[in-house]
Nucleic acid binder design. Structure first.
Lengths: 229, 229
DNA sequence: GCAAAAGTGTTTAACTTACACCCATGC
DNA sequence: GCATGGGTGTAAGTTAAACACTTTTGC
């Protein structure tokens, strides 16, 4: 270990974002067509480079804001990828972040402008560099989060039906869940408010809308109390 | 997002290691007295800077090897800390790794040479920069790992008693466990071999020694099958 | 009236927890 | 013979899993 910082190597540090969305059917990720070399024209995660004056969280937020027009998105640092030649152009490390956004909220113009597109997880194209690996790791992390705390409301509209919530969990976990057991578990958590309103778009009978209640959540789920879907 | 790598900022990237050990009583971490500025003379995690020619895992291994004389240690990347002024001398990011080593195996000479010392988790001194935060995060991660897979054999000698294993888990989780329930759960995993030998140092009756069986482990626990202590 | 999705409880099985006594040995 | 830590099983409680029928309403 040296005591002279000047003698040390400096590196380029990228931040790449796995942006998850949900369209009431499938879990999706937002990808862009890369418009510069290397690998121009191929699909890629959205990313950018860390600036001297920002933290990694700042950088991830900045990058996301540029593409989607939103800040205050749920976001979490995933892993630092550091294979020597992961970027053929130059030695670059990349810190992957994953983010959850409500697919209906984003600004379509911005997305067009960046040639971005939503892909279902299983239909996503092959990506540049180690981005496929990043996505895989992000899915696993999301899955682990999802079974231990009620994450994922960020992926739904403000008001949603139980069925939508269940479908979201099914697509995150990639398995079917029992309707009654699911509802019982969610209700046991006591973190939602049932509204008077019904959603009439998906059935003749209509289904009650629910809303996530942050206060209830903090009261009932904080302190790392976990549940199991 | 720019398309010219040269215009981007480069940063110093440190790797800091939280080294866990276990002395049959307490969970410990290995700290060093820093012998250079800034913060010379204060306690710190062991660390170093990433070199152009190595991955983060390489760097963490190199740093650990220098201090302990061991390679092939269990190690896992924890998080990338990036607060702007975390190092007052210069903008530096740090990727924290945590490692588990058998406290009896390490090379004491090397440790003396670096003025390193083992501290019980609750008696550790205040550390430089954001190193306390790193340690906290590492403990939480270790705890989460410990309850979901039988990690931690790296912290024990090759042959160990059930009591030792239980004490290790108790010190990781910072709670007392029931002796019978613990043994039943561990046995249910079927990943240990019970030896004929007994350890006579801790009681007159002596207690059977066990050994971790990698093959059994792979056969019975692989595929992310988790358990709960 | 019928198709399509919504809503609702109970029984069974699995797992987790709590708990207390005898054993072997060295001194 | 007694003090010390080692070893062992069961019953009760809790949690998770499996399961099917009725309701509403637009067409």
């Amino acid at each position: 270990m040296l005591n002279n910082y000047n003698a040390e190597d400096k590196v380029l540090l990228a931040v790449d974002c796995i942006i998850f969305g949900f369209d009431q059917e499938d879990l999706k990720i937002l990808l862009i067509k890369r418009d510069f070399e290397p690998e121009k024209g191929k699909w890629s995660l959205i990313g950018g480079f860390l600036k001297m004056t920002e933290t990694l969280d700042d950088a991830a937020n900045r990058i996301l804001y540029h593409l989607t027009g939103f800040d205050k998105i749920y976001m979490e640092q995933l892993y630092n990828f550091s294979k020597i030649d992961r970027d053929p152009a130059e030695r670059t490390l990349s810190v992957a972040y994953y983010a959850l956004i409500n697919i209906e909220d984003h600004d379509e113009k911005l997305i067009e402008q960046y040639s971005a597109k939503w892909f279902s997880i299983d239909e996503a194209p092959s990506l540049i560099f180690d981005h496929n690996q990043m996505v895989q790791k992000a899915i696993l992390r999301l899955r682990r989060r999802a079974i231990s705390k009620p994450i994922g409301f960020e992926l739904l509209p403000e008001k949603f039906t139980m069925r939508q919530l269940q479908k979201l969990y099914e697509s995150i976990l990639d398995e079917e869940l029992d309707k009654r057991n699911f509802i019982n578990k969610i209700n046991a958590l006591d973190i939602l408010v049932k509204l008077e309103e019904k959603d009439m778009t998906s059935s003749r009978k209509g289904s009650y809308l629910y809303q996530f209640d942050k206060e209830k959540y903090d009261r009932n789920v904080e302190d790392g109390i976990t549940f199991k879907i």
